[in-house]
């Protein structure tokens, strides 16, 4: 369970998260929508401790993320994150990209790590690209590789930060299919996205962020069908 309590986060004078409360249960898929600068991406980087927070607390399976005693590297093996920019490691093959963390962080042997990597890469449809370098892959393939790379750590939770925003339109579908597959398999996920119909399709709950506040959260049919908050209504009328 990911438990977010009254989390505040500022960059200098700018407060980007103004007291966020959100609990995500095992197996749940929560999507976060909202305009740019609403704080939705920042929340994800706070959840896995890439960003420090200024107030409140985030606990993952009982471990407080920002507590001084917390081993962040260990915690991050439980929480995978995929970014908008795929951040493929260009000097490593697809296989090496995926086996790096299992070998170096989890201490797996090569054979074991490669078996897991191959399974995950097959899962995302890249089984024929194992010895290819990322520069030879399309954006959609690189993003799917990044997803396999995160999955190879067998995380309990996955965070997706606008993972289709940097893709050419014709490549968005293949990545969304991969995400949908993960959701159907019961992966606990928090997704920040601009793909509204996708959000409506896969989510258990949808949260709308506005100016650092979670203005509204609800079942997709409710939030998209009958939004209560005026800002949600305004936002949805603009993106539709």
């Amino acid at each position: 369970m990911i438990d977010i309590q009254n989390v505040r986060k500022s960059f200098g004078d700018l407060e980007v998260l103004k007291g966020i409360d959100l609990t995500v249960e095992r197996g749940e898929v929560v999507t976060v929508i909202g305009g740019s600068g609403s704080g939705k991406s920042t929340l994800l980087t706070c959840i896995n401790g890439l960003e420090p927070i200024n107030g409140g607390k985030i606990t993952i399976d009982g471990t407080e993320v920002h507590a001084r005693s917390t081993d962040l590297n260990k915690l991050r093996t439980k929480v995978g994150i995929v970014f908008q920019q795929f951040n493929a490691f260009p000097h490593l093959t697809v296989m090496e990209n995926v086996t790096l963390a299992p070998r170096k962080v989890l201490g797996m042997g090569r054979a074991e790590a490669e078996a897991i990597a191959e399974k995950q890469l097959r899962h995302v449809g890249l089984a024929d690209k194992l010895s290819t370098y990322p520069s030879r892959l399309s954006g959609g393939q690189q993003q799917r590789m990044a997803i396999a790379r995160a999955l190879a750590m067998s995380p309990g939770y996955m965070l997706f930060d606008e993972v289709t925003s940097a893709l050419d339109p014709q490549l968005v579908g293949e990545v969304l299919e991969t995400l949908k597959m993960l959701a159907e398999e019961g992966m606990t996920m928090i997704l920040v996205t601009h793909e509204m119909s996708f959000a409506r399709d896969v989510s258990d709950r949808v949260a709308f962020f506005h100016k650092g506040v979670m203005a509204e959260i609800g079942a997709p049919d409710q939030l998209f069908g009958a939004p209560r908050h005026p800002e949600t209504q305004a936002f949805l009328s603009k993106v539709r």
């Binding site: 260990k74 991050r76 260009p90």
Partner: peptide, 24 residues
């Protein structure tokens, strides 16, 4: 983005340096 991705995978700064930053 490279160092952030490495950190997100749980790599320690030293591992990130030798495995990701230095080769590139």
């Amino acid at each position: 983005g490279q160092t952030e991705a490495a950190a997100a995978l749980g790599l320690k700064p030293r591992q990130t340096f030798f495995k990701i930053v230095l080769p590139q």
